[in-house]
Amino acid sequence: MSVLVYTESWDGKFRKSTFEAVSYASETAKLLGTDLVAVSLGEISNDELNKLGNYGASKVISASNIIKGDGQAATSVIAEQANDAKVIVFSNTYTAKMIAPRLSAKLKIGAISNVIEVATSTTPLIVKRKAFSSKAIEIVKVNSEKAIISIAPNSFGLIKTEGTLTIENSDTSEKGGITIKGQETASGKISISEAEIVVSGGRGLKGPENWGMIEELADLLVAATACSKPVSDIGWRPHSEHVGQTGKAVAADLYIAIGISGAIQHLAGVNSSKVMVAINTDPEAPFFKAADYGIVGDAFEVVPKLIEEIKKIR
């Protein structure tokens, strides 16, 4: 028996969400009294692979010929390694969402996504997950003997341990029915799902020309920038920044909402953040009911001051 974890990398590097999945899987392996095996897809250095050992993996199988975006190929390779696995862990990324459900169908194993805690029982496996766009928590039971668990990013955290890792290379080459023609990524930008801090602007900012201060604040805090739905619909900001129930989900340590009213659809996608700050001229804005800290005031006065104050401590 073992626990298997899919360790996703981007351009040959692991991110925090990967180490979080490994930490979670390691806790699960402890519960079951077994070892943790990782699977890595795509080109990656041994130095980078070795980092998995710091979070509890004892072995990693590295299949460098497999492209993670080819969900069919990725699923076959992970399935080959899953014979012995009682639990298979993913972080809920867009790519993992193409693999985990496939694996569930291929191996006929119950899969649970959006999981926020380590299992409360292992036979049967019972976990808590977010549902109804974070408006509720669901307790779910897996009916199959094995289980696939995808954890919601930033819900569990990192747990460092000491240990030795062995690297096993797999030269499997599989191919599914798609061809990947390339990627376009905004380099130098921090992604919303990965960011510890997110600075977000709404219609209260009046126009795209006023986003300079949002970006400056975000740069200072090493934060990602985001926006409300109407802001991206009007085209003030790119669609990739739209957060909320129908946009990206945010689960940051700190979410700063500037000129955002706090509509239920907006809050549903951001209220998994640990600390929320609202800056709004309207004391009745619903965001103040959800926020931990707030300033009733004009963003055009408050944000420049905030930038000055943060510069003092940085």
Partner: peptide
């Protein structure tokens, strides 16, 4: 994809 998009045929 996280932080961008992927082109596929």
């Amino acid at each position: 994809i996280d932080g961008g998009k992927e082109n596929i045929t």
